[in-house]
């Protein structure tokens, strides 16, 4: 048995990254950032408003939360739909009561499917960021570039028709192809939430700014994928806030990203934990609650040479 000799060659082995998407960096050597009011932590709360079609996509990969059983997977489809009908309203009330600014990653398919929900998201003052057309519209290596361009256009033009210009973008399932970043930049997107490799924003070589998406503290990952207790989930977020606040003393303002999924955290038996967590966060004196675009702009203003 012999392996193809290509496996013992390392063509991208060099100083820095093994690709040209962004340069290597050390978080602790970045310029210091100062947030509004001198707060140590920018709290970035995002809500996923997702539409999972009953017939899932076949190419690439299936986004987290998608259909699991053979067709028709009514149990998953309706569980996700519960998020957009019921649970998201619990989140709206809890977030409004705590005075949190919110970014909603929203599938453009919801503009037609659930127009009342889009009205309510806008009335709540949430920032709308793009999330592709629906959770089938994934980006992945091997996707035809013309098709990919079309996916982006379908989504952004639907928002334009609705009178919304999303500055932020998250790809469904956060997947990208080799050219997604440059296509998004060409389409006018200012920042993305696909990259989870830093605690602060950073510049791509040819693409929108990468905002620090923190999947390790997502409700979906912690409470459903890992089956953690709700108290443990919220304790971890408070723990993160404490550490980031301490780091901010030396290294400048930090970002705490909290990703919420209505069908997960908006369940009747869970909503109390979100209310309690938001209260704990919003009564601290070191937190500035802001949308993705507000944080991104503040970061740009701070780091411009």
């Amino acid at each position: 048995m012999t392996l193809d000799p290509e496996f013992l060659k390392y063509p991208m082995r060099r100083k820095g990254m093994d690709h040209d998407l962004y340069p290597a960096a050390n978080l602790f050597e970045q310029p210091k950032v100062t947030w509004a009011g001198g707060k140590k932590i920018a709290l970035w709360v995002t809500v996923a408003a997702e539409f999972f079609p009953l017939t899932p996509n076949e190419g690439g990969f299936r986004a987290a939360g998608h259909m699991a059983t053979p067709f028709p997977d009514y149990r998953t489809f309706t569980t996700r739909d519960y998020g957009n009908r019921v649970a998201i309203y619990r989140l709206m009330d809890a977030l409004a009561k705590a005075g949190v600014n919110v970014t909603a990653f929203t599938n453009s398919a919801l503009i037609e499917r659930t127009p009342a929900l889009i009205d309510d998201i806008q009335a709540a003052g949430w920032e709308i960021a793009a999330l592709g057309e629906d959770m089938n519209a994934v980006h992945y290596g091997g996707l035809d570039t013309a098709l990919e361009q079309q996916q982006i256009e379908t989504c952004l033009s639907a928002w334009a028709d609705r009178g919304v210009t999303p500055k932020g973008w998250m790809s469904p399932g956060r997947g990208q192809s080799d050219v997604t970043l440059s296509l998004l930049k060409q389409a006018g997107v200012e920042w993305t939430a696909d990259w989870g490799n830093d605690d602060m924003p950073f510049l791509m070589n040819d693409g929108p700014i990468a905002m620090p998406y923190t999947d390790e503290m997502e409700d979906r990952k912690c409470l459903t994928a890992l089956g953690q207790d709700e108290n443990i989930w919220s304790q971890q977020i408070i723990g993160a806030a404490d550490l980031l606040s301490k780091e901010a003393d030396t290294y400048g303002g930090r970002i705490l990203h909290l990703a919420l999924t209505p069908y997960v955290i908006g369940q009747p038996f869970r909503i109390k934990f979100l209310r309690d967590l938001l209260k704990q966060l919003m009564t601290r004196d070191d937190i500035w609650s802001a949308t993705g675009s507000q944080i991104c702009t503040a970061w740009q203003n701070n780091t411009k040479a």
Partner: peptide, 26 residues
């Protein structure tokens, strides 16, 4: 590798790549 795929998604699997890259940046 013919016996084990490096990533669950097709290359570039940026979610899983970035997850590890966080170690080297942060």
């Amino acid at each position: 590798n013919p016996h084990r795929s490096p990533w669950p998604r097709p290359n570039p699997d940026i979610v899983n790549y970035a997850y590890r890259d966080h170690g080297n940046r942060v």
